[in-house]
Design a protein around this nucleic acid. Sequence first.
RNA 1: GCGCCCGUAGCUCAACUGGACAGAGCAUCAGACUUCGGAUCUGAGGGUUGGGGGUUCGAAUCCCUCCGGGCGCGCCA
Length: 562
Amino acid sequence: MRIHLRELLTRAIEKTAQGGALNSTELPPVLLEPPKQREFGDLATNVAMLWAKTAKKPPRAIAETILKNLEDPDGILARKEIAGPGFLNFAFAPKFYYQRLRELAAGKEAALDLGHGAKVQVEFASVNPTGPLHVGHGRVAVIGDVLARLHEATGFKVEREYYVNDAGKQMENLGLSLYARYRELFGEKVDFPEDGYPGEYVTEIAAEIKQKDGDKYLKETKDVAVDYFRRYGGHSLLETIRRQLGEFGIEFGRFFYETDLTRAPLRGRSEVAITIDHLRERGLLYTEEGAQWFRSTQFGDDKDRAVIKSDGELTYFASDIAYHRNKFERRFAKLINVWGADHHGYVPRLKAALRGLGYDPEVLQVVLVQMVQLTRGGEPVRMGKRTGEFVSLDEVLEEVGRDAARFFLLMRKSDSHLDFDLDLAKRQSSENPVFYVQYAHARVASIFEQALKNGVAWNSAQRKIVPVERLELTEEMELIRKMSQINDVLEESVRELEPHRIVFYLLDLAGEFHRYYNRCRVISEDEDLTRARLLLVENTQKTIRRGLEILGVAAPLKMAAR
RNA sequence: GCGCCCGUAGCUCAACUGGACAGAGCAUCAGACUUCGGAUCUGAGGGUUGGGGGUUCGAAUCCCUCCGGGCGCGCCA
């Protein structure tokens, strides 16, 4: 919707500037937005007010000049006026809406190309394979997935990547935990490791190993056994995680293993070693108390960070720098990391390291995702991975289904806490937002079912000759208006990396449709009007489907029987 | 103690990043179909945007301060 007016407006502004109305050569940014008050029209801009400062002229005078210079050859504007302190308000003519509907029907508006094929990588989930995913992970995963879908839908070339931390102490703890459970299965009394993983799944994997190899690892040395268990457990749990994500509709293009960075090839050095060398060559490392430190304070971090410990071991940070260096070397136009918000303190040091290596840290954008609080009947559901009692993603999926789960996890801005009401999510009623949107989609399908029964002719030839001018109701204009906002919403959503905007938009659009449905009947004796209305609701349905697709939520033709 | 995030209607949250009288859903109350699915719609009430100060034409949004909640602050990962 926005782009059509933006062109006209930009031209008018340029003309005004050439007329010498502006002291500076710098033009103010043209921000067009739907005003909060509907009476103010369809779109409003504050350029005249922004301009007032540099031009040293009253905003209303500037606005007047812009209006005078505004040409509207096609007559898409019904109203253009100056309001309040200097806003320019615009309202579209019905003609404009008819154009939008025709273009929508022709599939033209569905192609939004903001990326022009630019390569974007989204790295998300990336949970250590030491246990199954819980809802918190689910939120991160769904947000990452939708950011990827959103970029795909707006003309970017997207790669989804999962970084597997398979090199560190947590994997070691997994191995020790399995080893302990394994021996318990043979009736031994063992002290469970302090930092071990207490979950039931550990025992299950240990039992699997026992089933397969019997008491083989009782006879091995502890080191050999634990090493095997670590690798076996890691594989097994990564498979579990993959399956869990798969059931959520999430697939990755690549799993990137930390060990590929830490292991040196036959002749040569590991990527981490190479990366650390780069930092050293740039004079960004120093030794203190036997450890090697990166001068991250030079780049805005609170304190310097260790990359090599005094025992010669690498820190996690070291491999993460190497990982991101690797990403930068793969030449993405944009790198997006989706992290749990508990890692927020980690962002400055990583960006510091990237700057230190000579990369532009702005290329990397980190989306932080806050925690999920599950509630059931208003009561919070206790969770805590440490204690082993947590609600796994499987249980949520089982209880509320994929669509509701995804929709609910996307309903909030990622940096605010999310209350996930399990009772509400599985309720099949009007209170449940996901049904509200899906129902709108299904409702259109049932209108078409009815139309078919009535013998209404509806094919691609018919669609082209629909007399859209027969649409005259306010509700019909509002519906088209709402539909034509989708590209604006996607644009904002991808710019701000905020998928929740799409959710709110779809709720809005569905509401607009339900209102219309209640206001009047689509199918009537009047054939021309019927066809015009069929075109209208068909494209509403198409628009809803397009949005739901980006969310990875099904757009059903029928709702399940209640 | 220091840093980051959050605080908006009874509840859960929006507000296009500084714009106009702060908007939705739920809950509450009052209404609407003999016809395309009532999983719907219409209307009403509900606010000093945690408190106070500042910046400017203009603040929920930016700055300072206080209160309250969350998360970080390892030679852990």
